[in-house]
Design a protein around this nucleic acid. Sequence first.
DNA 1: CTGAAAGCGCTTACAG
DNA 2: CTGAAAGCGCTTACAG
Lengths: 341, 341
Amino acid sequence: MADDRPIRRTLRIAEVAKLAGVSTATVSRALTDPGKLRPKTLALVEEAVRRTGYTPNLAARSLRARRSMVVLVVVPDIGNPFFADVLRGVEEALSAAGYGLLIGNLGPGAHKPAQVLDIVQAGQVDGVLLLNGNVPRDAERSLDRMDVPLVAICEAIPGVTFPQVEVQNREAARQAAELLIGLGHRRVAYLSGPAGNILEAERFGGFCEGLAAAGIAGPVARYRGDFTFAAGGAAAEEFLRAAERPTAVFAANDEMAIGFLKTVRAAGIAVPEALSIVGFDGIAFADYVEPMLTTFRQPRRALGNEGARLLVEAMGGHPSTARVRMPVELLVRASTGPLLG
Amino acid sequence: MADDRPIRRTLRIAEVAKLAGVSTATVSRALTDPGKLRPKTLALVEEAVRRTGYTPNLAARSLRARRSMVVLVVVPDIGNPFFADVLRGVEEALSAAGYGLLIGNLGPGAHKPAQVLDIVQAGQVDGVLLLNGNVPRDAERSLDRMDVPLVAICEAIPGVTFPQVEVQNREAARQAAELLIGLGHRRVAYLSGPAGNILEAERFGGFCEGLAAAGIAGPVARYRGDFTFAAGGAAAEEFLRAAERPTAVFAANDEMAIGFLKTVRAAGIAVPEALSIVGFDGIAFADYVEPMLTTFRQPRRALGNEGARLLVEAMGGHPSTARVRMPVELLVRASTGPLLG
DNA sequence: CTGAAAGCGCTTACAG
DNA sequence: CTGAAAGCGCTTACAG
């Protein structure tokens, strides 16, 4: 039978100590550094903890020990499935190391950089994981001048010295060019992400390199996008209006590739017979559009895991300047094919 | 020119008080309850805060004030885009009320219920938002016996008294039946979510009711699923093997509907000519499959907003037993059509 | 290996 | 309206 009395939330370390017949210092040690105690003493405390169901008050612990065991994760958009997957990896690694996860959503209508800075300045977190491609700052403050470990993942941040984990964007984009060229395409277009975005710059740069290596000056068109489905549709409208259309498109992410695909097919363009399309990211949906999308699968969970791991090390006093660049996997599907006619 | 010195993290309230020429009590009041101060005194403090860039230490504040201004959000799977969208709404409302957001991921390989209970017992959060359809408990403890405000959203929890926010699952499922019947279908199938899931039960129940109202005994087939793409594909295999196939399928969510759609189309089944498909949720991707999926759009962000709002009220000492049931919107698309032949 | 005691940085009755 | 002071519940030098 379960006991139906509400659990007393105000159980303190002193009561556990009393029950175990030791000092509060000993209880504290049993909980944070059991190796320091005699096995016999430890057993006494453990039994008392078990019997009382004691859990230390974290505010008190964090005030006294000057660490919170919480990490702030700054995401550009918590609603984006790409980041959700990365967060899964982050959560896994942090939770295994005993850290909690505070989410800072730097998207439109959400947190402002100042709020992120406040959280750090308030001593609320022991480290910050940045998925947003820049160092949060306001008029007076900048996160990298606060004394807190930082790690950037997914989107690299140029010119900083803290660890970063990203994928081989440039190499992959180059590979996209090679794939299309190998299929006979020469009039290729590029569907870009938001201007100023580092991923965008890397992917565009790599794509151009790949083209150049085959003696192609560059894409015949560069459509402006912002990583959304809608941007893909808009780019497709532009494509459809062109006098001489490209025969292949490389989109800087899957959402845009899918938006593009839908609009051109609705207009009667056969994919891949008349147009090849390549995306980037390898989101789950890429498997369910028709035709299945050729794309690059990012190791989203591994990105999150590795970033969290580096942050845990830094918080433990082992900072690094590691710059990890993980490979992506090209998935050749039905949305790309040889140039016909 | 920005000042490049690292920000001193150890600025305390005493220094601000000294600079303003007041007591620490006054600084504290200026920050938490400015109405209590004379405008002149308040201005003095504000100027000192501005000049020093002071941010109170939250561990100290939370230890002394006995509240943390942080909410624990328990999600079944942080990687699921559906929840990510709801979280966006939650984050919005909580952040506007000054609360932070701690994520507890109760998915496989992530947090265990015991960890959630520990967080609450440690006084780390002022309230808990449950998106997982049950009350976390372990061998000795149950969250609803801890003295903390609770609100359930998305998945209702039977038999509890705290506020809940869900959608009109039963009504919508009934409407799905009516839609299909109106199109002439009588041999309809149901693709279910995981057994024991409350959403699943409501949607199945409503669907059966809708059929019954038209004199149909029930679905001719009930495929077992678990809300994943893969489950949809597996159900489709079962569908394809049937001697006499249903002419319409209602899936308990969009992912399964999309998985089903892909597999039957690959097998040469024309949708909607030979088979109508209805999903549930209205995820973004439902707009990008071919044919576009008929589904019910859930107000994901609004669900999150409303749930967070109720929790903020409860944490402010205004508990309610509100049970909000938000409407969903039927989106009739190309995946449903009249029975032909 | 263990304990007594100071103190982390706030908030809040209490008093005036 | 404001201040002096106690105290939230821990951890950790320090001493033994």
